[in-house]
Design a binder for these strands. Structure first.
Length: 469
RNA sequence: GGUCCCAUCGUCUAGUGGCCUAGGACGUCGGCCUCUCACGCCGAAAACACGGGUUCGACUCCCGUUGGGAUCACCA
């Protein structure tokens, strides 16, 4: 690969960081890191009506959470209006751009008419040859698009794409209020920032020939392009809110690990043989546009959930304990800011790791270890906390009281010896105990549960269960 | 409608002319393990959109059809 690769992620702050944008950012980041290049964050906020500082913050927050760090920026386009002005002036001077006095209403009417007649919706070129300004109207500036020949786009994922120039219309590069538009700013900035590879969604593919013409008019070499296929919802329409959560941070709130989301996103469109689970290091090492597919991909929440569980299973207990705390606070299992016994929490988390698909689930399960009082599930209570289990629970309680060492192994020995003595299967004792301790019929292994819960709390709960029978 | 892109199991994908009796993963179904639930393990069903070429030979190359998507703003 060539030296000094420079890429950018250029979101428009008109919304939070969503799944599609995150994947674009991720592919840029991976390409930069793989090639030891530079990753620039640029905020495309020329639409002052819809851009907000809150969204800029939200995008940054999302990228940080995913672990996508950038080397330069964030650069805001609104800080660079004088630069764009200069380039527009240059194009105007060289006759490569011209003033257009057509009103938005007029243009809209033309488009409607063209649509009705089934023609292309291209601008008529009415003001192309105008020599004198039209008084009383603040004009826009249009780029004089070549009308002969073809424009070639050599794309790293789509291959060679050809556009006939006669299909391209004279796009507006400066609004009547003097602000520049996207197609101009994107080219100027990519030139100014020495971007070598433009990696973005393939919804931009149709804009690319126009931008290529702009590069040429400005006298610059075009960068390489990589247009990534879209992410679709289950109905194959472009992914949107009605398909469920699309905000990256919504996945944080639902208890997903950032690495799991990254891993899932990268596999939408990219593959490395049959491998499904990747570390960040592997991703950086293996990433290449050669393995990026051309077809749009459907977002599949079930597979993401599975991956999240895989990452939870692989995570060290101590890390998970740290990560689950905000969720314990949110579920009001613990109080915010309260000091925690992290060693104990890590142990508790260890018993839940293999049965939690998200941190939210984990926090909810942790409740029965932490709360002083538990609620019995109605069905569980009726089935297991009844007369025939009473004596077993009493025996268990007494056994625990007289146990010298309260260890998982000793607990197991006690359970088994009671079951044997009473000539019942282990489950006859374990299930009532489980309900007594956790309130439900599903939990980690009963010996671990006792071990984590500790002798005092265990005995208190057994007493309460016995009394309730 | 014009232009552009795309097309392998329900979904994500492997496959770059013979290795394909089309592989893996999620999900689904069945089984094993077992104190419950999970995890794990074993197994099953499940796809090359269609039609023409090219070739000794096409999932792979070409053309067309069909289907899907994107785009056509003084948004980005």
């Amino acid at each position: 690969m060539s030296e000094n690769i420079r890429v950018r992620f250029a979101p428009s702050p008109t919304g939070y960081l969503h799944i599609g944008g995150a994947r674009t950012a991720l592919f840029n980041w991976l390409f930069a890191r793989h090639n030891k290049g530079t990753f620039v964050l640029r905020i495309e906020d020329t639409d002052r009506e819809r851009s907000t500082d809150e969204y800029i913050e939200a995008i940054i927050e999302g990228m940080k959470w995913l672990g996508l760090d950038w080397d330069e920026g964030p650069v805001r386009q609104t800080d660079r209006f004088d630069v764009y002005k200069k380039y527009v002036g240059k194009l105007l001077e060289e006759g490569k751009a011209y003033y257009c006095y057509c009103s938005p209403e007029e243009l809209e009417a033309n488009r409607k008419e063209a649509m009705k007649q089934g023609r292309s919706l291209k601008y008529s070129g009415k003001c192309r040859g105008l020599k004198e300004p039209v008084p009383g109207i603040e004009p826009v500036v249009r780029f004089r698009m070549p009308q002969q020949g073809s424009t070639y786009v050599d794309d790293m994922v789509k291959g060679h794409v050809v556009f006939e120039n006669e299909q391209l219309d004279d796009l507006i590069i400066q609004r009547s209020d003097g602000t520049p538009t996207y197609n101009l700013t994107v080219v100027v900035d990519d030139v100014d920032m020495a971007i070598t590879h433009v990696v973005r969604g393939d919804d931009h593919l149709n804009n690319t020939p126009r931008q290529v013409q702009l590069y040429e008019a400005l006298g610059y070499e075009t960068p390489k392009f990589a247009h990534l296929p879209m992410i679709l919802g289950s109905d194959k329409a472009r992914l949107s809110k009605r398909h469920g959560a699309t905000s990256v941070m919504a996945y944080y709130e639902m208890g997903y690990l950032p690495q799991a989301l990254v891993n899932y996103l990268v596999r939408l469109g990219w593959s490395y043989g049959d491998q499904e689970v990747f570390s960040m290091e592997e991703l950086v090492q293996y990433f290449s546009f050669e393995n990026v597919g051309k077809a749009a991909a459907v977002f599949n929440p079930e597979k993401l959930l599975w991956l999240n569980q895989q990452y939870i299973i692989q995570s060290p207990n101590e890390t998970l304990a740290e990560q689950v705390i905000p969720f314990l606070e949110k579920e009001q299992v613990i109080q915010a800011g309260q000091q925690q016994d992290m060693k104990w929490l890590a142990k508790a988390v260890g018993t839940l790791r293999e049965r939690s698909k998200t941190l939210v689930e984990m926090a909810q399960s942790l409740r029965y270890y932490i709360d002083e009082d538990i609620e019995y599930e109605e069905k569980a209570k009726n089935k297991f906390l009844k007369e025939e289990s009473r004596e077993l629970l009493v025996e268990l309680k007494e056994g625990l009281e007289s146990m010298s060492e309260f260890t998982e192994q000793e607990i197991e020995n006690l359970f088994r010896s009671i079951a044997e003595r009473k000539e019942v299967k282990l489950g006859k004792l374990a299930q009532p105990a489980r309900v007594a301790l956790t309130g439900g019929t599903q939990s980690p292994g009963i010996f671990e549960v006792l071990d984590v819960m500790g002798r005092e709390k265990t005995i208190r709960r057994l007493e309460r269960a016995i009394d309730s029978i």
